[in-house]
Design a binder for these strands. Structure first.
Length: 531
DNA sequence: GTAGGGTTAG
């Protein structure tokens, strides 16, 4: 006798439910849709076995947000799994505001009565982090305590991570200190938080303490301590930990090598960076885009030694490394620095998914080489492409204007900065002063230097004093003399000031400046050549 | 029935 396929009344629903489950891991959208269709055509009650919530989960995790949303709206009582899937997928696709809207909707709505759980909080904390909204994070933290998740290991780790990413280490540390149980990730996360806040010493203390607590550091932990030192400019200490890592039986991985290489390059120690790169290849680690992006700026530092950026470019080509937008921008910058504008242009034009950094590199390239019209042309094209410039873009454009003699254009761009949502910083002000000074508009420049709240740095004063020198305005130089003596602690600008006095035989002034430099201990060391 | 966390780039 032929057995019926589904003997129980609900066995069809059971079957659909388990099939849906199996659709989720491989993110199989089509079978999920087929099951949905079957459920509808067979008039199965969607409330049975929370079928509608399972379908929401399946749609969300397969990336079909629209279907997930529609079904979520139609479902009278979506369960916590459905909610979590919605929030998690919105969060991981970067739609943080919407994720938060779903979360609060479900907090307030009568239509929704199951409580958030630790998965909900983990996901929503990621959105707070994505928005860098520590205030919101704090509110969620409050809710976590209210609902009794303050002792959950993974929720606490997520809280620490959120606070660290929002750059507020105090509450992160408080959560960490109050945890009854900590794992390697808890220690690593807080250590990174300190390292990124420039408090590497505290990271080291925690690194030693975790071992006393019987928690063994893993690759992530070692990488955190190594990159922490490297980012803070302590390459020697980074290297010390790098060597120690191997002695303690852990093999440096790609991220370890990348952190070391990038640290040495950022400290201008290009030769050592290159040596590390070679050791990495010998160790059999295959470099990736991060490695090459980090390494490329080294070519500018060591061009005179013989390894050129072009060789590194050749290497990229030989290993068939996929040139992503990071590598492309680094290549543009490298060719720009060694004066090969043509090569920079070719890379810029053949990069399909350009981002702001690529545009900035190319605009900077034109500016550096006096091609002010091209720089401005590209800057205006940015607007057509609906890309918002940032402070780097504006520094490059303003500096291009000043080098290329376009005073009015430069002033116009400076005035329009707030239109782009960029607040003028010291760099922009020094470009502005440079712009005015080069064309003799000294009194206006003097007005800017004296703007309330503007810190006088070497670049600000340097630009201004150069103008004074060229246009014979010792009177104006004298006017900021007193302020410099009080506020400045670096030699550069004092030398220019003293030169202005010297050029006019004003030896008293020269003597005076030298005395201040001596008192402030900023006497310039004798020049030396790197060769 | 929901994840795996944390490290490296312009």
């Amino acid at each position: 006798m032929k057995r019926p396929l589904f003997s129980q009344p609900n066995s069809f629903a059971h079957h659909c439910s388990s099939l849906l489950q199996r659709c989720m891991k491989p993110k199989a959208l089509k079978p999920s849709k087929q099951i949905h269709a079957l459920v509808l055509t067979k008039h199965i009650d969607m409330n049975v076995l929370s079928l509608s919530s399972k379908l929401i989960g399946a749609y969300a995790c397969c990336g079909d947000f629209n279907s997930a949303k529609l079904l979520f709206q139609e479902t009278p009582n979506p369960n916590v799994f459905a909610l979590n899937w919605m929030i998690l997928t919105l969060t991981s696709s970067g739609s943080h505001e919407e994720a938060i809207r779903y979360f609060s909707l479900c907090q307030e709505s009568k239509n929704y009565n199951s409580s958030p759980n630790k998965y909900t909080f983990s996901a929503i904390l990621k959105s707070c982090m994505g928005l860098l909204d520590a205030g919101l994070g704090k509110q969620v933290h409050g809710l976590i305590c209210k609902m009794g998740f303050q002792n959950d290991l993974s929720v606490c780790n997520d809280l620490i991570y959120m606070y660290c990413k929002c750059s507020i280490i105090c509450p992160a540390r408080q959560v960490f200190d109050e945890m009854s149980e900590r794992d390697v990730a808890s220690w690593t996360t807080i250590m990174c938080g300190y390292a990124n806040a420039g408090k590497i010493d505290e990271s080291v203390i925690l690194f030693e303490r975790m071992r006393m607590d019987g928690v063994k550091p893993n690759e992530f932990t070692w990488n955190a301590i190594i990159s922490g030192h490297a980012k803070n400019g302590d390459c020697d200490d980074a290297y010390m930990f790098f060597s120690r890592m191997s002695k303690e039986g852990l093999v440096p991985d790609l991220a370890t090598w990348n952190a070391m290489i990038s640290g040495f390059v950022q400290s201008q120690r290009a030769i050592e960076a290159l040596e590390l790169f070679r050791s990495m290849l010998i160790a059999g680690i295959k470099p990736n885009q991060v490695t090459l992006t980090a390494l490329l700026p080294a070519s500018g530092i060591i061009a005179s030694i013989g390894t050129t950026g072009k060789e590194i470019h050749g290497f990229i080509y030989r290993i068939k490394l996929d040139i992503n937008v990071f590598v492309a921008s680094a290549l543009i910058d490298m060719y720009s620095k060694c004066g090969n504008i043509k090569a920079a242009q070719i890379i810029f034009n053949t990069t399909p998914d350009k981002n702001l950094a690529s545009w900035n590199a190319m605009i900077g390239c034109y500016g550096k080489h006096g091609m002010v019209e091209s720089a401005i042309g590209l800057f205006e094209k940015l607007h057509d492409e609906k890309i918002q410039p940032n402070e780097v873009t504006l520094t490059s454009v303003l500096s291009a204007c000043s080098h290329g003699g376009l005073v009015e254009k430069g002033l116009e761009i400076f005035r329009s900065m707030d239109k782009y949502g960029v607040e003028a910083n010291i760099e922009h002000y020094s470009c502005l002063i440079d712009l005015l000074c080069r064309y003799g508009r000294m009194d206006e420049a003097y007005g800017i230097v004296n703007r309330v709240g503007l810190e006088i740095t070497n670049s600000i004063v340097g630009a201004f004093l150069n103008g004074c020198k060229i246009h014979g305005r010792r009177d104006l130089a004298e006017k900021i003399d007193d302020r410099m003596k009080v506020e400045m602690n670096k030699p550069g600008a004092f030398v220019t000031l003293s030169n202005i006095y010297a050029s006019e035989g004003e030896w008293g002034g020269v003597e005076d400046v030298r005395k201040v430099m001596k008192d402030k201990k900023v006497l310039k060391k004798p020049g030396f050549s790197s060769i």
